[in-house]
């Protein structure tokens, strides 16, 4: 596809930089603390969930460093949700550019996703501080984290391209996707440890979701190798089925890109 070559062209790099900068500046336009919100939002969400799930419904008992465990899940999920939701409206939102200049369409979605990635980066810094405060011993598996982030990013990007193109034609997708994300939040083991689900078949079914696999892997890599943190390898006991989530990521990415490429010529007309 030559996408790397296209990103590397001087013109496209300059444009991408400006698109990302503009999004960044406009995100919290007119708010007092501005960009701090992208850190405060997941932090507050964490605080609420933490209080609820340690005092009211103590789900996290038996999980080492449950606060950190919870926080890892929240920021990865937030990254995925934010990226897909914002990309969904990106083509429509940049309609003025699409209808009037020759701007590579993919760049609009790509720049939005990069902004989500920047946000994730900031949140990961907060996470590291948080880990230090919680006396989580750094693990060598920390080095896996970039790979896990790349996996979630590719997963989100495929879906983003698909949704952004679909939204041009069907404006309901926004609400449908909101509902899917809501359901996804509870289908993904973010709040509850997987050890709570005793039926191994259910565990395996839940792991078909790449977000479940990625979040559990991230927890394993960052927080603890304790058996209370069930990863897909543990659930499938090393079987090849454990590669299923990666296949989902690649398949959805291809579907998303293909659909986007097929639709992109008619964006200007359909907007």
């Amino acid at each position: 596809m030559g996408i790397v070559k296209r990103v590397n062209s001087k013109k496209n790099r300059a444009l991408l930089l400006q698109l990302v900068k503009t999004d960044f500046k406009l995100r919290y336009q007119g708010s007092v603390v501005g960009y701090l919100w992208s850190l405060l939002r997941p932090l507050f969400m964490f605080l609420i969930l933490y209080v609820v799930f340690t005092t009211v419904f103590p789900l996290g008992r038996g999980v080492p460093h449950y606060p950190v465990y919870l926080f890892v899940g929240i920021i990865l999920w937030n990254f995925f949700a934010e990226m897909t939701q914002q990309s969904l409206g990106s083509i429509v939102g940049r309609g003025d550019l699409i209808r009037k200049i020759r701007i590579p369409r993919w760049m609009v979605v790509f720049s939005t996703s990069l902004n989500a990635l920047i946000n994730l980066g900031l949140n990961l810094v907060v996470l590291m501080v948080f880990m230090a405060l919680n006396h989580v011993a750094p693990l060598a598996t920390l080095l896996w984290l970039p790979l896990i982030v790349i996996e979630v990013y590719i997963f989100g990007l495929g879906i983003s391209f698909f949704l952004a193109a679909l939204f041009v034609k069907y404006r309901d997708i926004q609400y449908v996707w909101e509902l899917i994300l809501q359901a996804g939040f509870y289908l993904t083991p973010i709040l509850y440890p997987l050890t709570r689900i005793e039926n191994p078949t259910f565990q395996k079914i839940l792991f078909m979701n790449p977000m479940a696999q990625a979040i559990q892997d991230a927890r394993y890599a960052l927080v603890s190798h304790d058996n209370a943190i069930v990863t897909i390898w543990r659930a499938f006991d090393g079987g090849w089925y454990a590669l299923f989530p990666f296949a989902v990521v690649i398949a959805l990415f291809c579907v998303g890109i293909t659909y986007f490429r097929n639709q992109q010529n008619s964006f200007a007309e359909n907007l």
């Binding site: 300059a14 444009l15 400006q18 698109l19 900068k21 503009t22 500046k25 336009q29 003025d96």
Partner: peptide
């Protein structure tokens, strides 16, 4: 095209310049 009312004149110049390559 691509002018954003919420950005300053300076920021818009850079954005517009990027659109021109």
């Amino acid at each position: 095209v691509g002018f954003n009312p919420e950005l300053t004149g300076r920021e818009n110049v850079y954005m517009n310049g990027a659109l021109l390559g």
